[in-house]
Design a protein around this nucleic acid. Structure first.
Lengths: 125, 125
DNA sequence: TTAGCATTTATAAAAATTTTCATATGAATT
DNA sequence: AATTCATATGAAAATTTTTATAAATGCTAA
């Protein structure tokens, strides 16, 4: 979508005001193509990361395996709450899981995490 | 905080289970230092970014100035809603602002944005 | 200077997320 | 086999975020 097309979508008064402004200050070129869409996945990733508990989990598990009860202890949170957040992270493929007896160990999936961070840079910088 | 200290914080049964497991599978070293804290600012940044409208604004304004009414048109959202989100973004210093007559133009503060993305990489990768 | 317009601000309503609590599941110890 | 323990799940409650509505600001053009 070009700036010109957006401008044409405004009501008459607004359009006149903006046109006049752009004519005098030349702050914006009408022929520029405007991109607003971010990948749905990327937004979802950022949302997952935006919770301090989930972000803390990813940081803590970036270079080690830990079982659920130790994760809960480290973050000083109820185990069932941690379980919920682990599920969310797993849902985005951001964790590896490994079972040892009745314990479950998790570790950050750094490949996947890096993929998202690179997407972020590409889209916004 | 070391893994050993976390372990000592568990109740006796749990501690025994975990100790026995670690003794046999050697998946985790008790002497490792565990880091869980992310910078408060960084989390706030990620939260700001986690809304699709705000992320869309940052993408659209990464290389141009646009006035509020055109931003609203481009995202096909009510102008007052856009104003709210602009305020949030301004509050994190993620936007430059410029007034031309009765219009207000915004543009992404790429320096600041880059700063946060770099923090993110440093903390999580 | 006044009337109109672009935008902001305040506040209330709606929607989404997080947390808690009760219960389920599956492995291991007894 | 029965019980216990670590973790998972689901639904309800609490909290936060987003959106909508109404009123206020401040610039400008007439």
């Amino acid at each position: 979508m070009k700036v010109r097309e957006l401008l044409e979508g405004l009501n008459e008064k607004q359009r006149r005001t903006v046109q006049r402004c752009l004519a005098s200050c030349e702050i914006l070129d009408l022929e520029e193509e405007v991109e607003t869409e971010l990948s749905k996945d990327l937004i979802e990733f950022v949302k997952v990361l935006s919770n301090p508990i989930r972000a803390g989990i990813l940081k803590m598990l970036k270079n080690r395996w830990m079982c659920v009860c130790l994760i809960a202890k480290a973050l000083n949170q109820d185990q069932t709450l941690i379980s919920h957040h682990l599920r969310t992270l797993k849902g985005m493929n951001l964790l590896h899981e490994r079972r040892e007896g009745k314990l479950r160990f998790y570790r950050t999936n750094l490949e996947e995490l890096k993929k998202y961070v690179e997407m972020l840079e590409k889209e916004l910088l």
